[in-house]
Design a protein around this nucleic acid. Structure first.
Lengths: 203, 203
DNA sequence: TTATATACGGAGGGTTCCTCCGTTTAACAA
DNA sequence: TTGTTAAACGGAGGAACCCTCCGTATATAA
């Protein structure tokens, strides 16, 4: 019942897995109480591990951020289908965008990591960025098909906008500002008829 | 005819002014051919001056960026009134937002500097950030008064959006993406009647 | 010419990033 | 158990950057 195709691969070392886990948890705590710019050295130090060990497990900063926030990203991506099930596609998209802002509000690190993933060289592999793009694409497609928004909207544009809105998330008042911008953007996405109708109650 | 109120202040030293000028020009060249993240050490080195000299003239990175791009920022701010003179306020706002993107497209450094100014602690002094805010506020006020956009739009929100759109200006395709987003945002700013009218030619 | 406020220069300490490689240790076979 | 070996560890160390501090040099004004 060996899964290996050829040769005899060893099973991964137990200490390796333990340390990887330890690093992820330490990083999570460090992001929370030092801030999103905490140094990788600091994370290694807190974990009681050598810096070399950290770099072997996570060759880039984004890699460890991704590991830390995998669950959050999954939730956010999953919320897309959940929202679609319970309301019109246009509203689902609107809610999801607000949700995006709320997620970033608590975990600012995600924003910059997403930023470098979305436009990055390798968009192919199933990274967190890819899952988020899938989610927003689904919402945009459905909303477009339902006539809730114009049919020619580029989902990546919207994602860029969302990431952009959360840029500078330290400045006071950024959150309400981002939410207002989402409302405006959402209005701009609607075909003129829909807006006119919404303006006079529903028909 | 002494301008000084009290005591006898000396006139600024000639070498000081020369070096300041030299630093600004060197920085401009360095931003252009090394990139927006060129180190301050590198700029001082290229200028043939000590790092201490650079820091005395420009205590922060933003300070030197501001000196380098003062003219560009002035032009951009000035464009607001020029545009207002030649077309309806709503269109002027729309054009100005596109112009903003074009300016950033060539000088990426401005974006991050603006970012830290706009939300920064001291919004009071007449910095570049302040002049940009004044420009966009003027446009928003006029457009609101003319009924081209809704009257309750917060100009700082728009500026944040613009800065956000230009975030990640290295990624391929960011510029057309930013322009599309501006169009959408602009549509969202319009009162429903205006959009409906525009959709069917003009009335 | 002299006095002195101004400006210069760069050494140096602190931080972060990341690589490299000698040492340790877990997994597996005999 | 013991030996072999691949995997993982650790941290020294070089490079880059930031910024301060203070001894030295010089332009200005008397």
């Amino acid at each position: 019942m060996n899964v290996e195709a050829k040769g005899q691969a060893r099973k991964p070392r137990a200490d390796g897995q333990r340390n990887r886990e330890r690093l992820v948890e330490t990083a999570k705590a460090a992001f929370a109480d030092v801030g999103p710019d905490v140094s990788l050295d600091e994370i290694a130090r807190r974990a009681g591990l050598g810096i070399g060990t950290l770099y072997r497990h996570f060759p880039t900063r984004d890699a460890i951020v991704e590991a830390v926030y995998r669950r959050e990203v999954d939730e956010l991506a999953g919320a897309a289908t959940r929202l679609l099930a319970s309301r019109p596609a246009g509203e689902a998209l609107h809610h999801w965008m607000r949700l995006f802002v709320d997620y970033i509000a608590t975990k600012k690190v995600i924003a910059s990591a997403l930023g470098s993933m979305v436009g990055g060289a390798s968009e192919l592999y199933a990274s967190s960025g890819a899952r988020i793009i899938q989610a927003i694409s689904l919402l945009v497609d459905r909303a477009g098909a339902a006539g809730d928004i114009r049919p020619d909207v580029n989902p990546k544009d919207l994602l860029r906008a969302l990431i952009g809105f959360t840029y500078g998330a330290d400045n006071v008042g950024w959150r309400p500002s981002a939410l207002r911008l989402i409302d405006i953007l959402m209005d701009g996405l609607k075909p003129a008829e829909v807006r006119a109708a919404a303006d006079q109650g529903q028909d």
